[in-house]
Design a protein around this nucleic acid. Sequence first.
DNA 1: TATTGTTATACTCTATAACTATA
DNA 2: TATAGTTATAGAGTATAACAATA
Lengths: 141, 141
Amino acid sequence: MPIGLQVQRTAKALNRAFDQALAEAGGSLPTWLILLSLKTRRWETQRELAAAVGIEGATLTHHLEGLERHGLVERSRDPDNRRVMRVELTGEGEAAFLRLRDAALKFDRRLRAGLDEDDVDALRAALARLHANVSEAGAPR
Amino acid sequence: MPIGLQVQRTAKALNRAFDQALAEAGGSLPTWLILLSLKTRRWETQRELAAAVGIEGATLTHHLEGLERHGLVERSRDPDNRRVMRVELTGEGEAAFLRLRDAALKFDRRLRAGLDEDDVDALRAALARLHANVSEAGAPR
DNA sequence: TATTGTTATACTCTATAACTATA
DNA sequence: TATAGTTATAGAGTATAACAATA
């Protein structure tokens, strides 16, 4: 079987299972990635944040609207540069982040079952290699 | 970084790159998986085929409609059991399959760059482990 | 003019529920 | 009644293009 096919199938299964785990904690994959990125560091612009999550700016706007509607983030214009929006977690957003983090950590433990440290390290290295192989040359445009 | 997150990110990058490679060959991931399944073996029912591809029957109908509209497959009722649809590749479907297969093989070579046989085998084993870990217990309902 | 973000729109993939036709 | 598949509908995620506001 082509290795790409196996990665794809595994990823599909993982994504579905992870999505379900996040849904049970009241989230989804994109919202988790966005909350995680917001907690990990401070972004100068929404576009930077979008790039970190791997989506377009307009798509991020769409998700941020949802997060704002649910009271998880607040957006305000930067007084120094009113084109820029500042995105911040609310208290409820923090709580949601913690819930989703727990779900993610629990999922990770489940994922690691039967793999020792060396296995995981080797897996990481192989994944990084695959990632590099598709990111490099062949992604023109 | 959680291993799940890394798999997810790698998978996203791979899926996008693979989708692009398939699009350049005139296909998409679901159509490729369906054509591949049709060539790999004969399925008794569409539902079996859907399960092999990892989608619901209604979703498969949707894709088969598209494939039929583009002249890649033909569907006819099984005379022995008129509830059952038989799905067959047309000549054009065969040609599309070959084009997509070439694209998939080319993609796979690109993916394997910098990995030797042992690396690939280890990767396969780790992926199988991850797949099993999410398929087993934690997928109730 | 260039940059930041939003709006409008649409596409793809997916699913569930109700339905048709066969058995 | 049960099974195979379709239709109708919807929702999530994504993108592009046109736009408004700001610099």
